[in-house]
Amino acid sequence: MKAIQQTLRNFVTENFLFGQGGDSFSNQDSFLESGIIDSTGVLELVTFLESEYKVSIADDELVPDNLDSIDRLLAFIERKLGDAQKCA
């Protein structure tokens, strides 16, 4: 879990903050409210999740409840990975 969390934080810091201020957002901070993410950012994030974790994200999962903070992302990915294992 720590590893996933760190990977997610790295992705957000490098890709949206260009290495600046990676310490300045907490795991609970909303990407939308803090302006970290814009409309293209959502697509970037989803592309990253799908390729990094080999999961497929459905249209109805593209909601802030799943994607709008490190904590929410972590929970979402763990759920997705768990589902994938159950299916396997």
Partner: peptide, 23 residues
Amino acid sequence: FSAGAVEWLVKKLRGGQITGIKD
């Protein structure tokens, strides 16, 4: 401009990911 941030930006654009208005 922050050299580190510019380096990340160029790296991202070279990587060919989706880029938006802001980038």
